[in-house]
Design a protein around this nucleic acid. Structure first.
Lengths: 337, 337
DNA sequence: GATGAACCCTGACGCTACGTCAGGCTCAAG
DNA sequence: CTTGAGCCTGACGTAGCGTCAGGGTTCATC
């Protein structure tokens, strides 16, 4: 397909496609002998992605970067994002419509609307508020490839747990909640506001039924679990302190929990040197989470020791949890132990 | 209200308002002693108009021109235009939504959509087709002040005629049809396509119920009359020829019709010199309508003589029409007369 | 009355995403 | 073989701001 034809079909100008080629955003996969640009199906798919992201408000440069190092995996995510954006757009357009209708009725009676009315209307016209800003979309798209395999795995795990009839407030769900929060943290670059709004959006828009992502029930289920977790942490740490916590790789916790289970099965006493070495490792991890801040560390430790819910996130089994706790006790307070 | 406050409320940046001031688009009505810009209610109203027209796709320069020489009369028209634009936007967004939904479903099953699918979707994303292009909006807004008094008068006349129970295919309606077409011609700069689409829009969007403009029934009523008129003209002229016809001021026809009625009442014979002078004037008008093209003129004359519907537009009374026709006959063919 | 923070001013230059030429080449149809 | 529509590569221009720099205003608080 030559450039003019593509331009006509896509509703763009030839110059625009030239421009996209010049900046390396969309380079046609072949050229004719005479030097004509020839666009193939994959070029068209790429153009689709480009236009979609443009509609979301991203700059051409950002789009190029995202498409070039995001791999092909982003396509469904883009479409999903677009669907939401459109839903928002429609909703807002309808609100604006209602406003304009009222304004028109007022004008018809000859009265002049007051300033606040004008301002509110102007605001609705200009800020076709997107759910997410361009910067936020960049992080969402950009980080997607870092998490999408883990995310898919988590989704299936959650689905299985739900199907098994495990209630959301069960301790069993806490590891899932932890994984969920961790992944969300990576995905949204730790921006809590963004995470919250993401959830909001999911709850409000019915377009979430793609089959691949989480469904509404799943989100509600995890919400409950996360809420419990946050409440438990909140009894020991302030919001600011929570925000200062760092992530450590989940495998680290898993291997530690595995070792603890092993020691326990072997009958090693919590005060034994092998157990205490384990306890020290565990405390080391916790220190990393607390960002090496002594005060934060103490509070976090208290949370882990006093709130089974919190500890349950990294150590599944009740018995192991208690074993590990005694081990840690013996490290912190060797005499009492 | 100072610039920052206005910017916040309106969802704009301070820089944008600076820019609008710099190009003379929105100059605050006062300044503080220290030189701060102070925006009053009228400035805010103007800003509303600006944002509305921007949303319709007009350039800042065009907006400035339209606002500066259009007078305050354009405000309700702008809102009306905006309402329609929003309706279109919503409709198209919903279509796009449906498409994207299908595309997502396809992607979920792992199949790759074909080229036509892509292209159609891209097209929908890019060309959020407005009903009217920026240029067309410019003529619509720009010409509005040239016709709005006549238009309002016509609307009330049509309303009265409809209420009187006059059927649309009555000859009595033809003068209204003629006025309607003439005004539309002025409003839309003679762009027939634009006129047609304007009617289309009116028919499709229910937001036409402002009370000031014509309602749906009225448009249908006039449509019928105009259709009859076009059919009658179409029996004698081709589409191209119809397009080449010029307008003459309606008063010219009216005064001629008045003079003819006067002569008839005085019993002046159609062949008398005073009558023939009138006939010559009438033919002169017709020649201007035919743009001084002999072939066109002949066809037009035939239409006027053979189609009472056509003649009825400028001469209301049957008797006067026949009198005038005989007069014209005597001018064209003095011997036979 | 001094001072600090928040806000505002006027230039001036930069930037994005194209539009708009100019001058020449290619391609398919007659 | 021509002819008209389409394409090429530069090159410059444009709209609508963003983003400093350098300096004045306002106003509440000390």
């Amino acid at each position: 397909m030559r450039i003019g034809e593509l331009a006509r079909h896509a509703g763009l100008t030839v110059r625009t496609l030239h421009h996209y080629d010049a900046i390396g955003l969309l380079t046609p996969s072949t050229r004719s002998e005479g030097g004509y640009r020839l666009y193939g199906p994959e070029d068209i798919a790429r153009l689709h992605a480009i236009q979609a992201m443009r509609q979301l408000g991203l700059s051409l440069e950002d789009i190029g970067r995202l498409l070039d190092d995001g791999g092909g995996t982003t396509l469904p995510v883009i479409v999903e994002q677009q669907l939401r954006a459109i839903d928002v757009q429609i909703e807002q357009a309808e609100k604006l419509r209602a406003r304009l209708g009222m304004l028109q009725a007022k004008l018809a009676t000859g009265s002049v609307p007051d300033m606040d009315d004008w301002l509110a209307t102007i605001r609705m016209m200009t800020t076709c508020d997107k759910y997410f800003s361009a910067d936020e979309l960049k992080t969402i798209f950009g980080n997607w490839r870092r998490i999408y395999t883990d995310w898919a795995a988590l989704i299936t795990d959650v689905r299985r747990t739900m199907k098994a009839g495990v209630p959301a407030d069960s301790l069993e769900v806490q590891p899932l909640a932890h994984r969920w929060m961790t992944l969300m943290g990576i995905w949204m670059d730790g921006n809590l506001d963004l995470i919250y709004r993401w959830g909001e959006m999911y709850r409000r828009e019915p377009s979430a039924l793609t089959g691949k992502g989480p469904d509404l029930g799943m989100v509600a289920y995890m919400d409950r679990a996360i809420q419990l977790r946050m409440a438990a942490l909140g009894r020991h740490l302030s919001i600011d302190e929570l925000l200062r916590l760092k992530q450590v790789p989940p495998e680290a916790w898993d291997t530690l929990a595995g070792s603890a289970a092993e020691l326990m099965r072997q009958g090693v006493a919590p005060g034994a040197s092998r157990a205490r070495a384990l306890g020290k490792q565990w405390l080391g991890l916790l220190e990393r989470v607390a960002d090496h801040d002594a005060v934060l560390f103490d509070k976090l430790l208290a949370a882990y020791c006093q709130e089974p819910l919190v500890a349950a996130a990294s150590v599944r089994e009740e018995a192991v949890r208690q074993y590990l706790q005694r081990t840690v006790q013996s490290v912190l307070d060797p005499i009492a132990a």
